[in-house]
Amino acid sequence: MSPRTNTSAAAGTWRLGDLTVNRVGFGAMRLTGTEPFDRGVPRDRDRSIGVLRRAVELGVNHLDTAAYYFSATRSANELINRALAPYPEDLVIATKVWPSRDPSGAWWWAAPEQLRGQVEENLRQLGRDHLDVVNLRVPPSRRTGSIGEHFGALAALRDAGLIRHLGLSHVTSEQLAEARAIAPVVCVQNPYGIGASHEDRAVLERCGELALAFVPFFAIAGPGREAGPVAGEGDAVRAVARAHGVSVAQVRLAWTLQQGPHVLAIPGTGDPDHLAQNMAAGALRLSDAEMARLTSVRSADA
């Protein structure tokens, strides 16, 4: 690989426990197929490997992945292993457990005693002897319930040395408090971007108070979620993009990063040009007036 250019460092750094990462990272979900979880249209393998290597060259040292990121012939974890092993010493790989997919692609959710198998699956695919960060990804059906039994099972795996740090994904403030009473939490991954709800913002602000990393997903896609950005953009987002001569995706990332120094970004792409744009968004600074205008955008207009 070529020497690093540290584009990812333009937005500064944050700590995941004792691990320091650049605030602009990379999400692996879109490496496996033209649509996430699609079984029929895998991305070109060499192109995906090239995107991963280029991301690291641009200074990315925080990768987000999961064993359930796979298409018919591609696995995100195995692409990461092929592209980057032996891994750079400063590279932090975060993964997620609780949801899973069988070989046919059908989804299922693990019982607490099945989490060890999911952790070991990530270890095998990534070729690691421990995982840097494991996020407990809470299912939609448990958004208001207890996560203590599952998080406790992960805490035991951390104590056993399989996991270095624990995080949470798709949680409420109450679930964050429940988990922190069981074991230390270093990050929270929740959907967040322009048009986010007051509830979503409350979790972001709570993470800031606790000095925990807040790692938003769908910051670019917004309400389009896994399918990608919706057709058309709100007038406010387009206007700010035109004023800076950048893409709407870069504006969305810049706005998200300016929510606080504890906010990280994990934009994902299988396109080298989009990768370069995403990394450059870390250096984009929006004015207070632009930030206020975008913050006032309603979810339906985002």
Rank of each mutant, 00 (worst) to 15 (best):
Ala55Arg: 11
Val56Thr: 14
Glu57Cys: 06
Leu58Ala: 14
Leu58Met: 15
Leu58Asp: 14
Leu58Ile: 04
Leu58His: 15
Leu58Lys: 10
Leu58Ser: 11
Leu58Tyr: 14
Val60Gln: 10
His62Ser: 09
His62Asn: 09
Thr65Pro: 11
Ala66Trp: 00
Ala66Cys: 04
Ala67Lys: 04
Tyr68Arg: 04
Tyr68Gly: 00
Phe70Asn: 03
Ser71Tyr: 09
Thr73Leu: 05
Thr73Asn: 06
Thr73Lys: 10
Arg74Cys: 14
Ser75Arg: 14
Ser75Trp: 08
Ser75Gln: 14
Ala76Lys: 06
Asn77Val: 00
Asn77Ser: 08
Asn77Gly: 01
Leu79Trp: 06
Ile80Thr: 08
Ile80Leu: 10
Asn81Leu: 00
Asn81Met: 00
Arg82Cys: 12
Arg82Ser: 15
Arg82Met: 13
Arg82Lys: 15
Ala83Pro: 13
Leu84Lys: 13
Ala85Gly: 04
Ala85Glu: 07
Pro86Ala: 08
Tyr87Arg: 05
Tyr87Gln: 07
Pro88Val: 03
Glu89Ala: 15
Glu89Met: 00
Asp90Ile: 01
Leu91Asp: 04
Ile93Glu: 05
Ile93Pro: 03
Ala94Trp: 01
Ala94Met: 08
Ala94Ser: 15
Thr95Trp: 04
Val97Trp: 05
Trp98Ala: 10
Ser100Gln: 07
Arg101Gln: 07
Arg101Gly: 01
Pro103His: 02
Pro103Tyr: 05
Trp107Met: 09
Trp108Glu: 02
Trp108Phe: 13
Trp109Asn: 03
Trp109Val: 10
Trp109Tyr: 12
Ala110Phe: 04
Ala111Gly: 09
Pro112Arg: 12
Pro112Cys: 13
Pro112Val: 10
Glu113Asn: 15
Glu113Cys: 09
Gln114Glu: 15
Leu115Lys: 11
Leu115Ile: 11
Arg116Gln: 15
Gly117Lys: 08
Gln118Ala: 12
Val119Pro: 13
Glu121Trp: 00
Glu121Ile: 01
Leu123Pro: 10
Arg124Asn: 11
Gln125Val: 00
Leu126Trp: 06
Leu126Asp: 07
Arg128Pro: 04
Arg128Thr: 06
Asp129Leu: 02
His130Cys: 08
Asp132Val: 01
Asp132Phe: 03
